[in-house]
Write a protein that binds this DNA or RNA. Sequence first.
DNA 1: TGAACGTGTGAACACATATTCATATATCAG
DNA 2: CTGATATATGAATATGTGTTCACACGTTCA
Lengths: 106, 106
Amino acid sequence: MRQITRGRLDLERASLLAETFKGLGDATRLRLLSILLEGETCVSDLAEQTETNQSAVSHQLRVLRNLGFVSNRREGKNIYYQIDDEHIEGLFNLALEHSYHLDSKE
Amino acid sequence: MRQITRGRLDLERASLLAETFKGLGDATRLRLLSILLEGETCVSDLAEQTETNQSAVSHQLRVLRNLGFVSNRREGKNIYYQIDDEHIEGLFNLALEHSYHLDSKE
DNA sequence: TGAACGTGTGAACACATATTCATATATCAG
DNA sequence: CTGATATATGAATATGTGTTCACACGTTCA
């Protein structure tokens, strides 16, 4: 059982966490993740479904890969991406709750 | 009981979520929040404890206020900030778990 | 081998963002 | 009112980031 480190963040740990949140701080990346949460998808399908050009998708997938959010595998000419992190869905849902929370404040 | 909206994110909702994550995507802001999670704190103390100049702290507190993460109250010359969102701690902890997850991959 | 297709990558550009400096505003003490 | 203190704010600057374009690379198929 992992003991979560609580208490004040030092600069180094804060920077690490900031990287994680920054990775989720872009609408295109969130939409890619949202599609991938429904299942493995290849790059061209991701581009089509998000109405984003293929190069932009590739760039953003690299960001997600570097953060350990997704992984990929080649199958012929296609490369399929998949979620490779168990916390993304939770982060999604908490952030959604926050947005509802905001609604109710206004 | 709130029904969480799942499934694919449209652009508008994705942008909203991205704002939330962007707000957490900065080490200075995360450290401020981390201190505030321990209790209400005034601006000058926040600046001192993060070794950040007062103006920068004020700017970042404004960002956090605009996102609904914190609120404040004046007491004499001081202004005390406090956490005003129930999801921040959860987001913190999930992101921490993700960072441990990353460690174990390398 | 060569053409077609899917994907990755570097450069360039436009735009966003964090920090600093100077200064404004608000409150309090005298 | 005056000066001191706490905080906010706008402008300037440096740095980061997302997208596009052009092209490279790898795979398949004929």
